[in-house]
Design a protein around this nucleic acid. Structure first.
Lengths: 250, 250
DNA sequence: CGCCTATTTGATCTGATTCAAACAATGTGG
DNA sequence: CCACATTGTTTGAATCAGATCAAATAGGCG
């Protein structure tokens, strides 16, 4: 049961992603198809870009899972976002030279690298692509805001449930779900670093969600057993993902 | 002792703000100076834009303090950012139609409204302004990431100290500080809603910072008594504000 | 002056952390 | 293909940072 991602090319994955938040003309799609992609598969977890780096490429996730994180002075790691097929997790490096965080991947992830110069040329020559990418970075920021609220104002169980809801909705709209399940190659320690909770408490909270029969988590997959129940537990409202907003829907 | 903000016009405040993160040509400055600004002074705290709205203007803070927040289903309020003179707190409304959060001001704040159509025209006609505004929205996102790390990984005292450091640096670079102090018209409840802490705990943490003699907080002003000490307490590193980054510094 | 809002203090409670160890799964080399 | 090492999950017990509840004090302002 291969993921859909396996069969289509990098540009198509990017087009599909951008199409979930904006509309692209055929000329713009063709311009994206002409991108030069140097891709690389990672068999083990590792960092792609590190805090302090001055990247000259943008990364595009072709398959697998990437995440951005900050290392604090006391050694703790805070994950600030997750990224899946079609995402451009460090698009910001195009306009902010120095990385203020790191980008890592989990095992079995494939990343394509697109030179900044090519992205800059696309932006210069195609107003629609500039708007799409800007809008993508604004949706990125909206997700950060929701994470601030999630971590700052929700208790452990709804907080984790909310993360699961977000990942499911995001992957589902990209066609990356199967039978109400998604790949979730994260350890409970990863989930803890993303939600600001200890591994032990993540474990106990997940057990609670399991006992409610709203999710199942096994073999690196998250199965949604009861979407309405999970959503209610998380008080999840997907509008912050801006998947069906003006102006593009108009 | 009037704030510097009193004496110069709205466009100049915006130019000064953008100049802290990018460089603008004289033509671009002139274009910004030609903006039509309808300004309004708020004598009491109130909302300017609400979650769900479809704004047709961008807001520019001329004076005072604005903040963005989310209201959660359980009634709690999470503040996700603060904004001061020269900031464009809802620039994102230009590309994300529907507001996913609200924008409020504290008493004695003055806001200018710039029609989206005018901002869009500026972006279309001036590549440098487009880049500056995009970069501004990316710095905004960087601050959100830092807040995620602050709330998710720091304990109460460093968390509050970090917020104070950020506000001081941001206002200082805009020329809004006086004798190592800034205006801070926030209640302890506001600070609690921004940091994910209860009002009582904010109070006790601030008392701790006072007892360390790193800050003084009185008459709606935050005085930095010992910058190095406060910074050490917060483990504050200002690089996420991207105030001295390539490419514009090059 | 008196009302309303903000700050402060005290006491108690609890969600979450920490420490420690057992257990399960996964992968590796011989 | 098994023995072993490594990584991830689960459980239990003790502890603590921060929340909650309640009430007193202090400021601002009409």
């Amino acid at each position: 049961m291969p993921e859909l991602g396996e069969q289509i090319g990098g540009p198509e994955k990017l087009i599909r992603k951008l199409s979930t938040i904006t509309s692209l003309s055929e000329a713009e799609r063709d311009a994206l198809r002409s991108l030069t992609l140097a891709s690389r598969a990672y068999s083990s977890a590792q960092d792609i870009v590190r805090e302090g780096d001055l990247p000259v490429n943008c990364c595009l996730v072709l398959d697998g899972f990437a995440y951005r994180y900050k290392l604090l002075a006391d050694g703790s790691r805070q994950i600030v976002s997750f990224h899946v097929t079609g995402d451009l997790p460090d698009l910001q490096s195009l306009h902010l030279g120095r990385m203020d965080h790191s980008l890592g991947v989990v095992a079995s992830t494939e990343i394509a690298f697109i030179p900044h110069l090519e992205v800059a040329a696309l932006i210069r020559n195609h107003q629609g692509i500039a708007t799409a990418l800007w809008r993508d970075s604004l949706v990125d920021a909206s997700i950060f805001r929701e994470w601030i609220a999630n971590i700052g104002a929700r208790s452990a169980i709804p907080r984790i449930a909310h993360l699961f809801c977000e990942l499911f909705v995001r992957m589902n709209v990209l066609g990356l779900s199967h039978d109400n399940s998604i790949v979730l190659p994260l350890t409970q320690a990863d989930i803890g670093d993303a939600t600001g909770l200890s591994t032990v408490h993540v474990n106990r909270s997940i057990q609670h969600l399991r006992s409610l029969r709203v999710i199942a988590l096994r073999e690196r997959r998250l199965h949604i057993l009861n979407w309405a129940g999970l959503q209610a537990e998380a008080l999840f409202d997907p509008s912050y993902l801006h998947l069906s907003d003006p102006p593009w829907a108009a």
